[in-house]
Simulated scan of single mutants.
Amino acid sequence: AAVVHHAGAGTSAAALRAGVPAVTVPVTADQPFWAARLAALGAASEPIPFRSLTAERLADSLGRVVEQRMYARAAAGAARHMAAEDGAAHVLAAVRRLTGA
């Protein structure tokens, strides 16, 4: 029904591909950025910084993303968008632009 994760780039992408809402608990590095992006997309609750993590906060956020259908709709929409995107073609075009190939 939902996924809890640290919001690293790869984990965030995997959660979005799964099409289920997330509760993020960022710890370091780029994780706060990706946690904020998931929340901005509506596919996750507001991040819970690791230092602020409690069982009550986690339970509250999990309950919210499971009970409020807007999170599931946003996550499913992101999954559909990602499935339709041809990321490799965008990378190839960028490489060709940069190299003049």
Rank of each mutant, 00 (worst) to 15 (best):
A2F: 06
V3S: 00
V3E: 02
V3T: 05
V3A: 04
V4A: 04
V4G: 08
H5Y: 03
H6A: 10
A7Q: 05
G8I: 00
A9M: 11
G10A: 01
G10S: 03
S12I: 03
S12W: 01
A13M: 15
A13H: 11
A13V: 09
A13L: 14
A13P: 00
L16Q: 08
L16N: 10
L16D: 04
L16H: 09
R17G: 02
R17A: 09
A18S: 12
A18M: 15
G19L: 03
G19P: 00
G19S: 07
V20K: 04
P21M: 10
P21A: 03
P21K: 01
V23Y: 02
V23N: 03
V23S: 01
T24S: 14
T24W: 04
P26T: 03
V27C: 05
T28N: 05
T28Q: 10
A29K: 13
D30V: 03
D30A: 06
Q31H: 12
Q31A: 11
P32T: 09
P32N: 13
P32Q: 08
W34R: 07
W34V: 07
W34S: 00
W34N: 06
W34M: 07
W34C: 01
A35V: 14
A35G: 12
A36L: 12
A36F: 03
A39I: 09
A40M: 04
A40N: 12
L41E: 11
G42E: 07
A44Q: 04
E46Y: 05
P47D: 13
P47F: 13
I48W: 08
F50N: 08
F50E: 08
R51A: 15
S52E: 14
L53C: 09
L53R: 07
T54W: 04
T54N: 03
T54H: 01
A55I: 02
E56Q: 06
E56V: 04
R57V: 01
L58G: 06
A59R: 07
A59D: 05
A59M: 06
A59W: 00
S61C: 11
L62R: 05
L62W: 08
R64F: 12
R64C: 13
V65H: 05
V66N: 05
E67P: 13
E67N: 08
Q68M: 14
Q68H: 07
M70Q: 15
A72M: 11
A72I: 12
A72G: 14
A74P: 10
A74V: 03
A74C: 14
A75T: 02
A76I: 06
G77Q: 15
G77M: 03
A78W: 03
A79E: 01
R80D: 15
H81I: 06
H81T: 13
M82G: 05
M82V: 04
D86P: 02
G87H: 01
A88M: 10
V91W: 00
V91Q: 02
L92Q: 13
L92Y: 06
A93F: 06
A93D: 14
A93Y: 08
A94Y: 14
A94M: 09
A94G: 11
A94T: 12
A94D: 15
A94Q: 13
V95I: 15
V95A: 06
R96L: 15
R96K: 14
R96I: 13
R96W: 15
R97Q: 09
R97D: 10
R97L: 13
L98F: 14
T99S: 02
G100H: 11
G100Y: 10
A101N: 11
A101H: 11
